[in-house]
């Protein structure tokens, strides 16, 4: 029996939906899946987690109770849980949180770690990931006593495989943390995280100013999408860096990416190349984004985007 741990990330609506793909990838005939939950609400997630094949839901706590966010404490707690339960493979989504916790665990265990994987094979302990600005795909072979993988959200299609899950609690002995988290504050009003969004509509230099992003937000509201941007828009101060997609911004892989007034530089593609369906709206038919899209409309985004919003409203909410 291979014991596999999954870091269960949650939001206000419950388990992050993109995790279902990761759980799907973790399953195997001889695999026992442990979902590690930090907010103490493991029992409440039972239905969602057992539907995709999690066998044991582990509420991870300290002697004092819940472990509030501290990447150092979380890493040490997970290492203890892995040791207590005999887990030697750990998976999660590639999010800011895993990027902060998994490398700490890998460092403690002196174990190999691959983040932002676009495919993983737990039988051969190999995984694929993009390298060199998305221009290549590398297959890695991992060796060691423990293995850690972070999967890029939305790249693995989720399939339910119901089991009956059991809920347990484990207490980790947390000593003194090497660092203190003084506060967690909101940077901007958005609540949807770009990297996990199923649909993204993004604007570039063609948007002309920050104000104009309103038309993207209106379209996003109809689609339940998040709004992204190119670096030009960020550098010009139109939108915050947290909205930047690309090499030096966020890497995303939504099922639908709509690029408005974005030329399609190598560095922008580096951050969204593995998106499912790519739509380009651009005045220039020669733009790289137009040349490498699934569907393109040559036209002025200020004309096309509001029309698109209206059409989506009638198609998606017919009344």
């Amino acid at each position: 029996m291979q014991k596999i741990g999954l870091l269960i990330e949650t939001n206000a609506d419950g388990v992050k939906p993109a995790l279902n793909g990761v759980i799907t990838a973790a399953r195997g005939p001889e695999h026992e899946l442990y979902g590690l939950v930090f907010d103490g609400k493991g029992a409440a997630y039972t239905d969602e987690l057992q539907d995709y094949g999690i066998h044991k839901i582990v509420n991870v706590q300290s002697a004092e109770g819940l472990l509030s966010w501290n990447p150092d404490n979380w890493a040490r707690a997970i290492v203890q849980v892995m040791e207590q339960l005999g887990i030697n493979i750990l998976l999660g989504l590639t999010t800011s949180q895993t990027k902060d916790v998994f490398p700490r665990i890998a460092a403690i265990l002196d174990a190999p770690l691959l983040l932002d994987c676009i495919g993983v094979d737990l039988e051969t302990l190999t995984a694929e990931k993009s390298q060199y600005s998305g221009k290549t795909v590398a297959t890695f072979k991992l060796r060691g006593a423990h293995y850690l993988f972070g999967i890029r959200p939305n790249v693995i299609t989720a399939h339910p495989a119901p089991v009956t899950a059991e809920v347990l609690s484990l207490q980790a002995q947390i000593g003194d943390a090497s660092l203190r988290v003084e506060a967690v504050k909101k940077d901007y009003a958005g609540t949807m995280d770009l990297s996990e969004a199923q649909i993204i509509i993004a604007g570039g230099r063609g948007m002309q100013n920050g104000e104009n992003y309103r038309i993207l937000h209106e379209c996003a509201d109809v689609l339940g999408a998040a709004v992204g941007a190119s670096r030009v828009a960020v550098d010009a101060g139109w939108v915050p860096h947290s909205m930047q997609v690309g090499q030096t911004g966020t890497t995303v892989s939504p099922i639908l990416y709509i690029a408005c007034g974005i030329s399609g530089s190598v560095q922008h593609f580096a951050g969204m190349k593995t998106s499912g369906v790519l739509v380009a709206i651009n005045t220039d038919p020669q733009a790289a984004m137009m040349q490498h899209c699934d569907y393109g409309i040559v036209g002025d985004l200020f004309n096309i985007v509001p029309l698109l919003t209206r059409q989506l409203k009638t198609t998606l909410n017919p009344e």
Binding site: D110, Q291, Y295
Partner: peptide, 26 residues
């Protein structure tokens, strides 16, 4: 180290896109 990571294969990332440009009035 107790573990290692090795690139065993590197291949170009292919893009298979439909490439359908939709013409006509907006």
């Amino acid at each position: 180290p107790a573990g290692s990571m090795e690139v065993v294969e590197l291949r170009p990332a292919f893009e298979k896109r439909r490439g359908k440009i939709i013409g006509g009035p907006p």
